[in-house]
């Protein structure tokens, strides 16, 4: 599963680094290191919706404080459905 987090300046100022660190931790804690591919993204111009996170092409708006909820719902959930987690 390809997960991309925008690392542009606007998203950075909205807390993208915190989102990244939380996702890195959650992925490792759930033993998903080879399954979830975490990538940085250049700014895609959706700055108002930042922090922009894309999961297999679908754009989500995430905040540092909603990262855990987002991980459960959009990453762990679908992976469990596919039997990958």
């Amino acid at each position: 599963m390809r997960v991309s987090i925008c690392i542009g300046s606007a998203c950075h100022l909205k807390g993208s680094r915190e989102v990244i660190q939380k996702l890195q931790k959650l992925v490792t804690e759930h033993g998903l290191d080879g399954t979830v591919d975490l990538n940085g993204d250049f700014c895609s111009g959706n700055c108002r919706r930042g922090v922009c996170v894309t999961v297999d092409g679908t754009l989500f708006s995430v905040k540092p404080e909603t990262t855990e909820e987002f991980f459960e719902k959009e990453i762990l959930g679908p992976l469990k459905e596919q039997g990958l987690a």
């Binding site: 987090i5 690392i7 660190q21 996702l23 890195q24 975490l38 990538n39 940085g40």
Partner: peptide, 13 residues
């Protein structure tokens, strides 16, 4: 390399 976030703590840009 900076875009590979599977590596922690790397250069931001």
């Amino acid at each position: 390399e900076t875009l590979d976030l599977n590596i922690q703590g790397n250069a931001d840009y």
